[in-house]
């Protein structure tokens, strides 16, 4: 039996499969389909300080192997979240990863304070893909300084020992710059990735399909992009734990993320079509690791980064005339 436990910045979870923020509400609905205490943790919908109505409808369009959404962070606000959602997760005995979102550095600081000391919180995920009202709506995640300020504020206001993960946006020129800025500001780990900005035009109405015009693309369509981001971030910051996500549908999909450098994964959009997906992905991932003779999940993290195996030629070439694979050769030149 492969040891599926995973340690994220000092906190150990029984297994590496989580829900994704905004794709599982606060776990209660999914608990009707599977026992939410059986997965690594429930990542809750990004919560803001105050109640928020979200955007107009249509908020959703289906795309090939994906979907576009523009929910606009609808939610009840932190107070109701604490008394209803987090209280439920606590009573249920589920591990909660609370995602927070704000419009200013102060919002994030206040949200972190509200969560401080709460027993049910296993981890805080900082959704920095939000417009900064103090900077003409510029998205925090697109600017290293703004990202750094938010992460610093959250880290300082969060219970010591509770990991703070910054959730990165793929809509940036160089994700490693933002990743470094977040880690330097105190992020204990990184969630990679949020949705990619997209648009669908309804060819019947001949207008954008979403009321919000653009939306976030998610689902298997983005998986190779997400795996590439996880790879790049792990390569740049090999000691920083990554919660990887983007289009995970099967255990082998999850394994790709783990091999690229993720210590845990979130299953998001797939849940909409398959409400039991997180437990299925967990079982499939465990089986895949066992089939590959990997005794501990932790041993597979980042394994794809190892150098390619040296090519050992068959005789009649004499010893000392070995060819190295071209990749290794390039590294030496």
């Amino acid at each position: 039996m492969t040891d599926m436990s995973t340690t994220l910045a000092g906190v150990t979870f029984p297994n590496p499969v989580f829900t994704a923020s905004g794709c599982a509400a606060a776990g209660r609905e999914l608990d009707q389909f599977f026992d939410v205490t059986q997965i690594g943790g429930v990542v809750t919908k990004s919560i803001m300080l105050n109640a928020r109505s979200g955007r107009a409808t249509p908020r959703m369009a289906e795309t090939p192997s994906g979907m576009l959404n523009s929910i606009g962070l609808q939610g009840p606000g932190i107070e109701e979240f604490l008394t209803k959602d987090l209280a439920w997760l606590e009573k249920r005995g589920a591990r909660a990863v609370v995602s927070i979102a704000g419009g200013s550095v102060e919002d994030y600081a206040l949200l972190a304070q509200k969560l401080r000391g709460h027993k049910a919180v296993s981890m805080v995920e900082v959704n920095i893909s939000c417009p900064n009202v103090e900077d003409r709506g510029q998205v925090f995640a697109c600017d290293p300084r703004a990202s750094s300020n938010v992460v610093d504020a959250v880290r300082r206001n969060t219970t010591p020992g509770i990991p703070v993960f910054a959730k990165l946006s793929p809509d940036v020129t160089d994700i490693t710059t933002i990743a470094r800025a977040c880690v330097d500001a105190g992020a204990d780990g990184l969630s990679v990735i949020n949705t990619l900005l997209g648009m669908v035009i309804d060819t019947t109405t001949m207008r954008p399909a979403l009321a919000g015009l653009t939306g976030g693309l998610s689902g298997p369509a983005i998986r190779p992009v997400a795996v590439r981001f996880v790879w790049q971030v792990h390569q740049a910051l090999p000691h920083v734990p990554i919660l990887g996500m983007g289009g995970i549908r099967t255990g082998l999909d999850a394994l790709e993320f783990v091999l690229a450098g993720a210590s845990a994964v979130s299953v998001g959009t797939t849940v909409f079509g398959d409400p039991t997906a997180p437990v299925r992905v967990l079982a499939e991932l465990q089986q895949a690791l066992e089939q590959r003779g990997i005794a501990r999940l932790a041993d597979a993290v980042g394994l794809a980064h190892r150098p390619p195996e040296t090519y050992v030629p068959e005789r009649p070439d004499p010893v000392g005339d070995e060819l190295v694979s071209t990749d290794v050769f390039e590294e030496h030149s």
Binding site: C23, L30, S53, T57, I71, F272, P275
Partner: peptide, 27 residues
Amino acid sequence: EESMACGIGVCMTCVLPVVGEDGLTRM
């Protein structure tokens, strides 16, 4: 009949404005 992504209450795509018992409108 609203357009629904999940049907089980986890995605928030299927909202419409409804007046509650407290007289307040919510999505």
